[in-house]
Simulated assay, not measured.
Amino acid sequence: MIVRIMGEGQVRLADSHLTELNKLDDELLAEMENGDGPGFRRTLNALLSKVRELGVPLPDDSLEPSELILPAPEATLEEVRGLLTGGGLIPG
């Protein structure tokens, strides 16, 4: 799966990592619903760090279609709400 972090670039991520990422996504969704700004920021950064850790960066000149687009690290809670697709940022 190709994942884009807005403002950073793309990584190739094995589908086998989705379960681990979905746990962070569920936590992020709960924090958003509760209006927990500090928790939201902490979990968003943890989610993006995990994607960077587990993913293999694609070259900057690569034009692969992204299957998943994640917000930039500095995205606000309101901006991330606009990216949600039903059950969170990550399908599944």
Rank of each mutant, 00 (worst) to 15 (best):
M1D: 08
M1N: 09
I2K: 11
V3I: 08
I5M: 02
M6N: 05
G7C: 00
E8F: 02
E8K: 04
E8M: 04
G9A: 00
Q10I: 00
V11M: 06
R12E: 15
L13D: 12
A14Y: 08
D15M: 14
D15Y: 13
S16M: 13
L18D: 09
T19M: 12
E20R: 14
L21D: 04
N22T: 14
K23A: 15
L24S: 07
D25Q: 05
D25M: 09
E27P: 00
E27G: 09
L28Q: 07
M32T: 12
M32Y: 11
M32I: 15
N34F: 13
D36A: 14
G37N: 03
G39S: 04
F40W: 03
R41C: 00
T43E: 00
T43K: 00
L44M: 03
N45G: 04
N45T: 02
A46I: 01
L47W: 05
L47C: 08
S49Y: 09
S49V: 02
K50D: 05
K50S: 10
K50M: 11
V51T: 03
V51L: 09
R52E: 07
L54W: 10
L54N: 04
L54T: 08
G55M: 07
G55I: 03
G55D: 07
G55C: 03
P57F: 11
P57M: 05
P57C: 06
P57D: 05
L58N: 04
D60E: 03
D60L: 04
D60F: 01
D61P: 00
L63Q: 15
E64L: 06
E67V: 06
I69Y: 01
I69Q: 07
L70A: 12
L70Y: 08
L70W: 11
P71V: 03
P71D: 03
A72H: 08
E74C: 03
E74G: 02
A75W: 01
T76A: 00
L77S: 01
L77F: 04
E79K: 11
G82R: 15
L83Q: 08
L83R: 08
G87K: 14
L89S: 11
L89A: 07
I90S: 13
P91W: 14
G92H: 14
G92Y: 14
